[in-house]
Design a protein around this nucleic acid. Structure first.
Lengths: 145, 145
DNA sequence: CAAATGACTTGCGTGAAGCAAGTGATCTGC
DNA sequence: GCAGATCACTTGCTTCACGCAAGTCATTTG
């Protein structure tokens, strides 16, 4: 699994890796943040080949970590709509830095225009992500205590 | 293991997670980057409880990925000295963003002063890391092709 | 030169990942 | 209004990676 059974140190990096230190969790966040995907089957068919049982477990874990929320779809009761919380959206800088590093050193198919925007107008790109989630109530509630 | 056997997509995030998408790899990078650790036993006893076989495998993997190099210690032939390459140092922004996120949302023991510096003087902190590795030949060579 | 140290390697048991198929609720087309 | 499709999972099974303990081998120290 992603997380060792006993908690390690309280180092911020160690704690973060207990949450998303596996090959799949951040891909789900990416699907939500950048690809606009919202439902189980959309994640499942996003192209990376995650197994359905693993996906189900990661979504539960992300929900418990307060990074996503799960709502019933008003129009179709079979569907569940997943959304990022603010805590989830605040992973944007992490994802952006990963994209920049990966684009610099690995052979990726990232759109050059997007990468260039991330590199030269980081703050703009980040606040753009925030805005996308703030408008039209796409941002999930919760975190109110 | 960290990496699924078949390559997934060429998405930059997916590719990066194939390299460090596990609970241990970035901790070794952290030990090198922020804690000044350099040898196998230092990593092994860094407090997180990584198993020696896993550590050995991660170091080989990091070396193959061009993120660290392994050198014989001039003073003690039993020791191997591990160093970050530039590619490894360039993971600093990723680690910094992880620290900031984790500090904001989780209960960590990160020194507030350090976190504050990362938040308010990001560029300073990053170039400081670069400088530390540039001076005195600590920066590993390689990457010359 | 014996004991200690450092960097791993090996062997074993357990748990997580990958794969295929199944389940139950809801929806759609005829 | 019911059969078949869709959706979000769950179950069962096999394989693989992790965690743990112990061992190996070169080098160094007392």
């Amino acid at each position: 699994m992603a997380t060792p059974r006993t908690q390690r140190s309280r180092c911020p990096i160690s704690i973060a890796l207990e949450i998303f230190g596996d090959p799949w969790t951040l891909l789900v966040v990416r699907d939500l943040m950048f690809k606009g995907l919202r439902t189980f089957n959309e994640f499942l068919n996003a192209g990376e080949g995650i197994a359905s049982n693993v996906l189900a477990e990661r979504l539960t874990r992300l929900e418990r970590a307060g990074i996503v929320t799960r709502h019933a779809d008003a129009a179709d009761a079979r569907k569940r709509v997943y959304r990022l919380t603010r805590k989830g959206i605040d992973l944007a800088p992490v994802l952006v830095e990963i994209v920049l590093w990966s684009d610099r050193y690995e052979d990726t198919d990232a759109p050059p225009q997007t990468v260039h925007a991330m590199r030269t107008q980081r703050e703009e790109v980040l606040s753009q992500v925030q805005r996308e989630w703030a408008e039209s109530g796409k941002l999930s509630g919760r975190r109110r205590r």
